[in-house]
Design a binder for these strands. Structure first.
Lengths: 252, 252
DNA sequence: CGCAGATTTGAATGCAATCAACACTGGTGG
DNA sequence: CCACCAGTGTTGATTGCATTCAAATCTGCG
């Protein structure tokens, strides 16, 4: 269960002291029930969260009831680290699956940064990775159609899981309902269903009891126009099977 | 021309030493021609930018030529501060209007943070504000229609300009073409044009030589479902004319 | 003047939303 | 144990927002 370290160390290995300080700052592991909310929009928090196991998502609900999912977080992520600097949440956060998290009091974060400035930069960098992903989501929603958006989303989560050594390239399960997927890529449930079915028909994915499995990752990446660059992963965290987008374009 | 200070001080006033150090870290002011690119996707930079005057935008271009605008920056913003931590740009940045910027070498930023840790937090916070806006863009693209998206975008830029004391509540110009607006909210130029015309017809905005003027800010905010909260502005930086969304909902 | 970029308009197409209904699942409580 | 119910997945039909293609106008500018 060393995920929090594993992901932050993708950027730069930690010294033993830094690693110890980081772990010491985390509270005890906490179990969260699937579908449970963790923080709600408008709340003021005095601690941030690190995700140890399971999937967390962030979302906003509009006055008319529409929900937009903003991010899907994998183990090793710090989903609400920003609350260290923007105390009142401008969105909500909940558990997609059963998951275990740990809390970091903001005071502990401050102390951590004071004593280990480089750790502060790594934490800042983590929030910048989330921004990079957010930018790609804007692109996804802005220019791609439902089919490509879906493919891109699935590829992204796969890549994030693979980067911390959880997902297999060949086979990986995504426990999101079609309602969730629809709210993430901005289409209705009905249309999401038809999109998923088309993907199944074309052999890209398979569905099994409320979760999605990747059957053909390269073709899925191609369908979504997926390019690893925006994840800013070190080369070793990218699967060797990934073909450069340029190559795929010429093939398609 | 103290915009860089003015915006960062919205969160917290700087001490004289901090202010001096921040200004000292900035290079000399640089003029940028309208429509000129400042950094391109894929480049590795050794400095970040602060916007002193004019408007900057960030964007991605897809292999098929589609462009998605990711952000519109106003004076006092640090549009590519993230490059301090993610050296290679995952998107491009250009000038919307003629504008003046200053460069901050990454080495200067590091030194700034080392000697003034609180300044480091304020810079981090600036990047978190950009993330908050990015989240709202995801919502905008995901759940709102073209009309509301346009209204929301215009309101956002107005609010940002007003926060640093540039835009007037009653009257303010936005020098973006309809092509730009379309690429920002993810609709075609043709549809953007029809949306703008509808807004003109309803008396929300007016158009004058390639720029847009707000005529009725409250109604525009209502149309876009605009809520100041996500900008995390201190109360004094919000116009008194802003009505709480709840209030507007009951009115509409 | 001529040109390029921006705006405008029309017509046809299509992607996706909406409305509606139904099947399936697991969980709850009587 | 079964009825019921809520959530999920599936399908069909209709509507409409937005795209695309096309062409014309307008504007500033060299």
């Amino acid at each position: 269960m060393d995920y929090p370290i594993k992901k932050i160390e993708l950027a730069n290995p930690l010294s033993p002291e830094e690693r110890a300080a980081l772990i010491a700052a985390c509270g005890p592991p906490i179990d969260v029930a699937p579908r449970a909310d963790i923080v709600l929009e408008g709340e003021r928090t005095e601690h941030s969260t690190v995700l140890l196991d399971g999937l967390i998502y962030r979302y906003k609900v509009l006055p008319n009831g529409d929900r937009q999912i903003l991010a899907v977080h994998t183990p090793g992520d710090w989903p609400d680290l920003h609350s260290y600097l923007l105390k009142t949440m401008d969105h909500s956060m909940g558990a997609l699956t059963r998951c275990t998290i740990a809390h970091l009091p903001h005071s502990a974060i401050r102390q951590l940064i004071d004593t280990h400035p480089r750790l502060g930069e790594l934490l800042w960098r983590e929030t910048m990775l989330d921004s990079a992903i957010l930018r790609e989501w804007v692109v996804n929603l802005g220019v791609r159609d439902a089919y490509a958006r879906t493919a891109h989303l699935v590829c992204e989560i796969q890549a994030k899981l693979a980067a911390v050594g959880i997902a297999d390239v060949a086979y990986f399960e995504l426990p999101m309902t079609q309602v969730d997927l629809g709210d993430a890529i901005g289409v209705s449930t009905v249309h999401m269903n038809r999109t998923v079915q088309r993907m199944k028909g074309e052999g890209l994915i398979a569905c099994l009891n409320r979760s999605i499995t990747i059957l053909d990752l390269p073709r899925l990446q191609h369908a979504g126009g997926f390019d690893y660059a925006y994840l800013h992963l070190p080369p070793r965290a990218r699967p060797a099977t990934f073909l450069e987008p340029l190559l795929l374009r010429e093939t398609g």
